[in-house]
């Protein structure tokens, strides 16, 4: 089966006064119909820019998609006209963002903002759109939907606003929903509610999801496949259980070690990854993770490892992944 969305060698750079920021460096992945994938990585690893580039939503200038293809429904989204990409945005591929407090327009009613994509993409008139908007608000669990339509964003709590954003994203029944850290700005109980909501909506609607997060805990309950990003590259891809039980890339191991776990007991200290991510303007020649990696060799500092398909479901970008895997197994796990 052909993938719903196929990304090949996507490269996005920002041309600033200080130099060229290598935000996304030739990432490739695919998304199947109805599948949920997660993209994880720390701040500045290019997760957001990577997905915003799919819809050409990065500010240009200073940003520029310098290379890559994004195939969707037989078309390369990087090559089609501005009018054509607008037909895709919101209708076939929808996006929800990190901060619901600032992502809704403060001077327009919730109803207006919700009805906009319906009128634009589905050609609904005002009454039809209003009816559908009420259904959408009910679908995302906003009580008193009919009366809330005329309210303004500031009259909603953060969690409720994110529900509105989700309703807006799903308005036209898109095939793909891109969720750019939708729970990061919310408190923990609301985070769980939003994750549950998206899971249940996915069962109803069946859209594929790209979920961006730096929270590995959220990933475990949500995604089927995980891409790990570091310094604008995908360094590891695996099915979610494989990634947790048997990580191959030293960076993934570092990430797992730095997540607190309830079953580990209080005595166990978290192990942070030493050092800092590389400067994306002065991009390193070798493996970008090498300076922080305990397995590094001279080769790592000279040559950037390409991402390698090592099994039907796994890819890893590390010269020494076999050594790493053997070492972890010998020690008896990531946390040993």
């Amino acid at each position: 089966m052909a993938a719903l969305l196929e990304v090949k060698g996507l490269t996005t750079q920002f041309f600033t006064q200080d130099g060229v920021v290598h935000a996304v460096n030739g990432i490739s992945y695919h998304l199947n119909e109805g599948e949920t994938i997660a993209i994880v990585g720390e701040s500045g690893s290019g997760k957001s820019v990577g997905v915003m580039s799919l819809l050409r939503l990065i500010p240009q200038p200073p940003g520029k998609i310098v290379a890559g293809e994004v195939w969707f429904q037989g078309r390369d989204l990087m090559q089609i006209s501005d009018d054509e990409i607008r037909q895709i945005r919101g209708k076939h591929i929808a996006m929800i963002f990190q901060d619901p407090m600032t992502s809704l327009n403060p001077v327009l009613t919730i109803g207006f903002q919700l009805m906009e994509p319906l009128q634009l993409h589905l050609g609904m008139d005002k009454n039809q759109a209003r009816k559908r908007a009420i259904e959408l608000l009910e679908m995302v669990g906003i009580p008193g939907a009919a009366t809330r339509l005329d309210a303004y964003p500031h009259q909603f709590s953060g969690g409720m606003r994110q529900r509105v954003m989700i309703a807006m994203g799903l308005a036209c029944n898109p095939q793909v929903l891109i969720a750019d850290e939708p729970t990061t700005a919310l408190d923990v109980t609301i985070q769980a509610q939003i994750v549950e909501l998206v899971k249940s909506l996915k069962e109803q609607i069946g859209m594929a999801i790209i979920w961006i997060t730096h929270d590995l805990g959220v990933v475990a309950g949500l995604a089927e496949r995980v891409l790990v990003m570091y310094a604008g590259q995908i360094v590891e891809e695996a099915e979610v259980h494989e990634l947790y039980s048997d990580p191959h890339h030293p960076y993934t191991i570092g990430l797992l070690r730095s997540v607190p776990r309830l079953d580990m007991g209080k005595s166990k200290r978290l192990i942070p990854i030493e050092g800092l991510p590389p400067d994306l303007i002065d991009y390193p020649k070798g493996c970008p993770f090498a300076p922080r990696c305990e397995y590094r060799t001279e080769k790592c500092e000279q040559e950037d490892p390409p991402i390698e398909q090592i099994s039907p479901t796994r890819r890893v970008a590390c010269w020494h992944w076999e050594t790493v895997v053997a070492d972890i197994r010998e020690k008896g796990g990531v946390y040993a």
């Binding site: 819809l55 939503l57 500010p59 607008r86 037909q87 895709i88 945005r89 919101g90 209708k91 929808a94 996006m95 963002f97 901060d99 600032t102 992502s103 809704l104 327009n105 403060p106 001077v107 327009l108 906009e116 994509p117 634009l120 993409h121 954003m165 807006m168």
Partner: peptide, 27 residues
């Protein structure tokens, strides 16, 4: 124009003119 809600408006597929006139000007 740099606000998040302008990005949201663009992500909906609105025309640039609609983004400016409806979403940016009033603010």
């Amino acid at each position: 124009i740099r606000e998040d809600y302008i990005r949201t408006a663009r992500a909906k597929g609105l025309r640039e003119r609609a983004v400016i006139v409806t979403h940016a000007l009033k603010n």
